[in-house]
């Protein structure tokens, strides 16, 4: 077949641009793109107009390969739209619809302008379809990459947030661990703990594992590493917050921690106070004793 579909397509889009844009926007609105309230109508309109304009310019250059230089600005615009949608929390269907709903208005316009010449319509439809599929795929690819970036950033933030070292008293630190311990996190935990020991001149560090969902041999090994490193710095460690099920699993797995462990953070803190020569005394009790003395 010798008919150049791209040529027909360029002509149609140039001639019928306002009509295509109108139909496209109507379809987008119908599809519910505005209903979620995440994007305003004016914004959607601008986006659609820019994309269509750039598509026309790119087609006018005579290129039909989406990877070529002529489509660079269109790729960028679509990437930008896709990325912002990923961050705004659009679903992948919504994002894909934005591009794919352009198909129908273009096909209609082709039907109007090339009325009667079936082979021309077929050729133009084929090239339009091929091109828009590529646009859609590109959009999805960028969308997915952006989503993965968001997830990656969140993972990192969680890792940073979930390893605080808290000062409970002079020379007593607490390290409440939350979430699964893997090698990467153990590294961060260990560094934080050791640095805090230096900064606070701590004698005792309490590692609270109430928030650790499972303790297997690997997690135990990681914990032991941190404890051994703290010992080398001259600080003792106490483990607290081992839940009953975890204690059972640990014994069944044959995991041995060989360190002082207490059921709750409170117990561990009491032990730490005792070891550093302190005691907690109830004020009321002291008052009673005093009154008894007077009697």
């Amino acid at each position: 077949m010798e008919i150049d579909g791209t040529q027909v397509l360029v002509r149609t889009i140039t001639d019928e641009e306002p009509a295509i844009l109108m139909a496209w926007l109507a379809l987008l609105k119908e599809g519910g793109s505005l209903q979620t309230g995440r994007i305003r109508e004016a914004e959607l309109q601008t986006q659609a107009k820019v994309v269509l304009g750039q598509l026309r310019d790119a087609l006018a250059s005579g290129q039909s390969d989406f990877g070529s230089e002529a489509y660079a600005s269109l790729r960028e615009t679509l990437g930008e739209i896709s990325r912002s949608r990923a961050i705004q929390g659009f679903s992948s269907t919504d994002t894909a619809k934005f591009v794919f709903s352009l198909k129908e208005p273009i096909f209609e316009a082709l039907g109007r302008t090339q009325a009667g010449d079936a082979s021309l319509i077929a050729a133009a439809t084929r090239s339009a379809s091929r091109l828009l599929d590529r646009l859609g795929l590109h959009t999805m690819e960028v969308f997915q990459t952006s989503r993965e970036e968001v997830i990656g950033r969140q993972t990192q933030e969680i890792a940073e947030l979930s390893t605080p070292v808290v000062r409970l008293w002079d020379g007593i630190l607490a390290l409440p661990l939350i979430g699964t311990l893997d090698s990467a996190r153990t590294g961060v935990v260990m560094e934080n703990l050791l640095q805090a020991i230096v900064d606070e001149e701590a004698e005792i560090a309490i590692i609270d594992i109430t928030g650790v969902p499972t303790v297997d041999t690997l997690v135990a090994q990681h914990l032991l590493k941190a404890i051994a490193a703290a010992r080398l710095m001259g600080a003792d460690c106490i483990i607290s917050g081992i839940r009953p099920q975890i204690a059972q699993t640990m014994v069944h797995l044959g995991v041995e921690l060989n360190v002082v462990s207490k059921a709750t953070l409170a117990d561990a803190f009491a032990l730490a106070l005792r070891r550093t020569g302190r005691a907690v005394v109830r004020k009321q009790a002291a008052a009673t004793t005093a009154s008894e003395d007077r009697r």
């Binding site: 260990m190 560094e191 050791l194 640095q195 020991i197 230096v198 590493k225 051994a228 490193a229 703290a230 080398l232 710095m233 001259g234």
Partner: peptide, 11 residues
Amino acid sequence: MRPAVAITLIE
């Protein structure tokens, strides 16, 4: 002992 040294020895 420095933290880095302690970590190295443990590793």
